[in-house]
């Protein structure tokens, strides 16, 4: 159960940091790293697709209703749920590949923006137009990849600590790449 509590804490923290800090950063191209997405990807990579999709759904729902959100409720829930599931499928390979988190984050950021925009286009949202999207996508992916080590590292560390306390000698979810630190 502590795993669920942990996931909740990570998602809420990511959401708050996203809204109060990241979105107001004066970064070039007016794009900001998507911390909520990163948190979902990291949790899915560590805990598998079940946790990934449930976390993604609730993180997305929170992102949908938290102020100042002003889009149709359910859009992020749908997108993050899918991404959580897909990234969770790759959880077993986390042990073997040190670059997997980065690939997963890059793919997740790309898929997240495209899916979100596609749902928006279907609903006739004037904000998601192709010219805006094509400018934003590469920068968004780049920022997410740059920010990913911090988020993934934080999540892994928290998980390791929680598992050491509650489940000594249990699942070894920490991959070799991060275990060295």
């Amino acid at each position: 159960m502590s795993r669920n509590v942990l996931a909740t804490i990570v998602v809420v923290a990511a959401l708050l940091l996203q809204l109060t800090v990241a979105n107001r950063l004066p970064l070039p191209a007016s794009v900001t790293p998507n911390l909520v997405l990163l948190a979902v990807v990291a949790l899915a990579l560590v805990n598998g697709s079940m946790t990934g999709l449930v976390t993604g759904f609730f993180a997305g729902l929170a992102a949908d209703i938290v102020p100042p959100a002003d889009h149709t409720i359910g859009r992020y829930a749908f997108v993050y749920c899918l991404i959580g599931y897909v990234c969770g499928l790759a959880a077993d390979d986390l042990e073997r590949s040190p670059v997997l988190p980065f690939v997963a984050v890059a793919a997740g950021a790309l898929a997240g923006s495209v899916l979100y925009a596609m749902v928006g286009m279907m609903l006739g949202d004037p904000r998601t137009r192709w010219p805006v999207l094509s400018h934003q996508l590469p920068v968004q992916v780049l920022y997410d990849v740059i920010a990913s080590p911090f988020v993934v590292w934080a999540v892994l560390r928290l998980t390791r600590r929680a598992e050491r306390q509650h489940d000594p000698g249990g699942l070894d979810a920490v991959p070799g790449f991060y275990r060295a630190r």
Binding site: L53, G74, F78, L123
Partner: peptide, 23 residues
């Protein structure tokens, strides 16, 4: 254990819920 029938069922349910909310 990762991609079980149960996981897919939950995925389907949650996706349906979010689509219903969007609608």
């Amino acid at each position: 254990m990762n991609d079980t029938r149960r996981t897919r069922a939950v995925l389907g349910v949650l996706l349906l819920i979010s689509l219903a909310m969007i609608t």
